[in-house]
Design a protein around this nucleic acid. Structure first.
Lengths: 189, 189
DNA sequence: TCCTTAAACTAACACTTGTTAGTTAGTGTT
DNA sequence: AACACTAACTAACAAGTGTTAGTTTAAGGA
């Protein structure tokens, strides 16, 4: 009736715990206690611990993939594409603070779906790199090794989940703008 | 005779495994197998699994603290201090690729030494923030929320351990310079 | 040769892990 | 009244967990 199933509640709670201790350190009994039930009862709603991790990570990874495809196929300039990527990360991260922790730190425990995840991530990085390269080619972006730029920007964006909750005034548009300015124009006067 | 004790070998091997799977997912039997011995034999050299983690993380954290204190007490301009911080991270990260993974991802499992670690980290971030703030005050650095700048730069530097091993031509001076340019002057033309 | 030390071993312990089986209680539907 | 569904429960299992105790083996110094 509430539109949120018990299964979704469990997955959300699990993501919260995973963020604090990591997938491996969270036991099904920890999760059950956080839900106020016994460990065995979890299995009325989910198939396995592994399945919870998959549900958290894969849906997020696919969300990023879809966002990147939209940006890539637009007619924006490279700098504008970059700004849209920053907005994409701010949006998804702020809506999935806990899930982003698993995406960043626990993907290696995706046993069956590991390859698929890695494919999505590699594709995403390649698309990102291509945008930077064509920006360099067109003279929009400074001609430094695109690998270092990619690393610097993407790492910052991937860690947003750690910092967004610390800001009391979470004005997301303002955060996107500040980030765009800092990542693109630097901090020099 | 070799200058490297068996204990140090174990800690180095552990750090390597911790980087790939995380502290909690690595068992003493995994570690023993990687060393070519039985799990019980590890205890001739180390006191506990926990102690291995502490040895990895605390020494690294203290290295950063010492580096920051040197930079802080110098007479350099804020931008030059920033460049030195970047060099500090590149140097320590390249020399401790595996340990940096634990420092970043497994610090929450430092049971007894958790508070001490958190103190070191908080102090480091405060010193870093102060440098940015005085750079803003003196007009060296653009007047955007220092919190977002700190986040962006520090996150990039903390993740260096993930990217340095991917570069075949690990010219560390060149990497420091590229990073300084990107982080300080941005990527815009 | 005797003693010490480093570094491995086997065997076992108490506890924790994810998971399954079978059951029960409440709620709504036919 | 009979049924099905949801969601909890107790009890248990097989495997794996960190760790301890006690023993063995090889090398070097006295």
């Amino acid at each position: 009736m509430k539109g949120i199933t018990r299964k979704e509640e469990i997955i959300t709670t699990a993501a919260k715990l995973f963020k604090e201790k990591g997938y491996s350190a969270v036991t099904m009994r920890d999760l059950a206690k956080a839900m106020g039930i016994k460990a065995a009862s979890l299995y009325n709603h989910i198939n396995s611990k592994q399945d919870i991790l998959k549900a958290i990570i894969i849906s997020l990874a696919e969300e990023f993939t879809e966002g990147m495809q939209l940006i890539q196929s637009s007619n924006d300039s490279c700098i504008d594409k970059l700004k849209k990527i920053i907005e994409l990360h701010v949006k998804i991260s702020s809506q999935n603070i806990y899930g982003m922790a698993s995406l960043n730190n626990d993907w290696m425990h995706l046993e069956e779906h590991l390859k698929y995840y890695q494919q999505l991530r590699d594709d995403y990085e390649n698309d990102f790199r291509d945008i930077l390269k064509s920006g360099i080619a067109s003279g929009e972006i400074i001609d430094i090794k695109p690998e270092v730029m990619l690393f610097s920007i993407l790492t910052t964006l991937r860690s947003l989940y750690l910092w967004i909750p610390k800001k009391e005034d979470v004005n997301l548009d303002e955060l996107s703008n500040s980030l765009s300015q800092i990542l693109i124009k630097g901090i020099n006067i």
